[in-house]
């Protein structure tokens, strides 16, 4: 069953629990210069009317359907997992050319200094296959980051549209 990461910016606070979950799962070695696969942002965006929007965001690999990193890799490290739909990799043959990172619109693949190879978020593919949630989703206490199946996503998507419409029409029962 294909899985999809869903991010709700109205629930995020950039608390970075997801980042901790990712580091814990993937044994990110900061001292060796490694960088976590997931990153949060606490940005202030000045709007045209002079007000400021506080953007709290969490990002990692988007697991694109048509992932440009896959085609960019000259040695075929990257692929789609047919079961989960995540963009996974085997960096045994990685030559550290960083083509994947350059092709990625989000800069998700990371170059690991310690062994000169590419690493990235694989959606915690093995965990998901074993019935667990991705580590970042598991660590998100506010429900901002979720991982659902394609079917769940379609269903929740239609609910979301319906809810938004009810709110727009001001039909929700008060009190």
């Amino acid at each position: 069953m294909k899985h999809i990461f869903v991010f709700d910016p109205d629930k995020c606070s950039a608390c970075s629990s997801c980042v901790m979950g990712c580091m814990d799962q993937n044994d990110i070695d900061l001292a060796a210069g490694d960088v976590c696969y997931r990153k949060t942002f606490d940005n202030e965006i000045e709007l045209a009317d002079g007000s400021v929007y506080c953007a709290y965001l969490s990002t990692a690999c988007m697991h694109c359907n048509d992932a440009p990193c896959i085609d960019a890799c000259p040695v075929g490290c990257l692929s789609k997992d047919p079961e989960t739909g995540f963009t996974v990799y085997d960096n045994t043959n990685c030559i550290g050319c960083k083509s994947c990172a350059m092709a990625c619109p989000f800069g998700a693949p990371r170059y690991r200094k310690s062994d000169g190879k590419m690493v990235k978020c694989d959606g915690c593919n093995e965990r998901v296959k074993n019935g667990l949630q991705p580590a970042c989703v598991r660590a998100c206490t506010f429900g901002a980051l979720t991982c659902v199946t394609e079917e769940e996503y379609r269903q929740s998507g239609s609910n979301k549209a319906c809810n938004a419409l009810i709110d727009q029409l001001n039909l929700r029962k008060k009190g």
């Binding site: 629990s17 979950g21 580091m23 814990d24 206490t141």
Partner: peptide, 25 residues
């Protein structure tokens, strides 16, 4: 080797904050 919130715990129901998620470290 890893820490997560306990889902069946009656207080936090599996949730942990940023600090707790870094407990191993």
């Amino acid at each position: 080797i890893k820490v997560e919130g306990t889902p069946e715990h009656p207080y936090n129901h599996g949730h942990l904050c940023t600090k707790g998620s870094a407990l191993r470290n």
